[in-house]
Amino acid sequence: MIETTPITSATSPQGKAAATTTKEPSALTSDFETFLKMLTAQARNQDPLEPLNSSEYAAQLAQFSMVEQQVRTNESLSELTGLLGGPKMTQLSAWIGSEVRAVAPAFFDGTPVRISTTPNELADSSTLVVRNGSGEVVNRQALAQGGRAAIWNGLDADGVPMATGHYSFSVENYRGSELLSEDAAATFNRVTEAQVEGDDVILILEGGQAILAQLVTAVRSGDPQSQ
């Protein structure tokens, strides 16, 4: 039996910074401002009969400005390196290769699809409904009452293998001939990429579909031998 790890939120408060800090101005910036004040004072108090060479001012100012710009560039690169190697990137990399359970279409590539279902206690029969990427029903199969899992073998209602693509699943619950409800069913999909958009983590699943990480209800190892 495959063990899964339920999760309530993919972006928990523990994974976010609890406080922010104010960046202090660098010593070089402070020195640059002092340098400008000194140049200004020197220009105001120079001897009118023997004025200072303006080209020297320009050269010194340009050199100091270049040094300051280089230091700021290095600081920006350091911040970027820290971000890429920090906790957020570690959090993203942890998703890659795992299989996540969510109410989302499954990518079918010839391998039977495992579906997670939630029994309806008021129903006395349930039917799994399979739809293709266009929303058309391609198969219906009876489910064991009270079961929490089902397998679709990739065949349509006539027993013909379906093409590779995305398929969605739902469960119709009946009491006698009365339809009580039709509930979307969750499937496991392998994560191939994880992205950050603002405060959201976006998971790209095998086959290209994207879901929000907070929609994930369970995670399991992506090792085929553990299936």
Rank of each mutant, 00 (worst) to 15 (best):
A213C: 03
D200H: 09
S98K: 15
Q145K: 15
G147W: 00
G165E: 03
P48E: 02
G15C: 10
E193K: 14
T111N: 04
L128S: 03
G222Q: 04
F64I: 13
G86S: 01
G147L: 07
I115F: 03
S125L: 08
S226F: 15
S65E: 10
Q70V: 08
T217M: 05
I2M: 14
E172W: 04
V129D: 02
S116M: 09
W95R: 04
R114A: 05
R140C: 04
M1P: 12
S177K: 13
E3G: 07
E3H: 14
T187H: 00
S30Y: 10
T29A: 15
E172P: 15
F32S: 02
A142F: 08
I204S: 15
V137P: 10
V201Y: 00
T192E: 09
V103R: 14
N189L: 04
A59G: 11
S221M: 05
P25A: 08
P161K: 02
P105G: 02
F32G: 00
I151H: 14
E178K: 08
S26R: 05
S226G: 02
A17P: 06
T127A: 05
N74Q: 12
M89K: 10
F32L: 03
E33D: 14
L61G: 03
F35E: 01
R131F: 00
A149F: 08
G110C: 07
G159H: 03
V171H: 11
S9A: 11
G147Q: 09
G133P: 05
R114E: 11
P87Y: 01
D199W: 11
A213H: 00
A27W: 09
S116A: 12
A18I: 15
Q225W: 11
T127N: 04
G146Q: 03
P87L: 04
S168G: 04
I2H: 12
Q209E: 13
N139K: 07
D156S: 12
K88V: 15
A218L: 10
G165P: 14
G15T: 11
A142I: 01
T217V: 07
V219P: 07
V138E: 10
V160Q: 03
Q14R: 12
T90D: 05
R140T: 08
L77W: 07
V219L: 00
Q63V: 05
A163I: 15
S55H: 10
T217K: 01
T81F: 08
A185M: 01
Q141K: 08
L143Q: 03
D158M: 08
E136I: 12
L61E: 08
T5G: 02
K23D: 11
F64H: 09
L77Q: 08
T34L: 11
E56H: 15
S170E: 00
D183K: 01
A185Q: 01
A123R: 13
P105D: 02
A218F: 11
L179Y: 02
Q14V: 10
N139M: 05
V130I: 06
H166D: 11
S54N: 12
G110N: 04
P48Q: 02
G146R: 08
S168P: 08
R175D: 05
D109S: 14
P224N: 00
T90H: 09
N153A: 07
A41V: 15
K37C: 00
A104D: 09
Q70K: 06
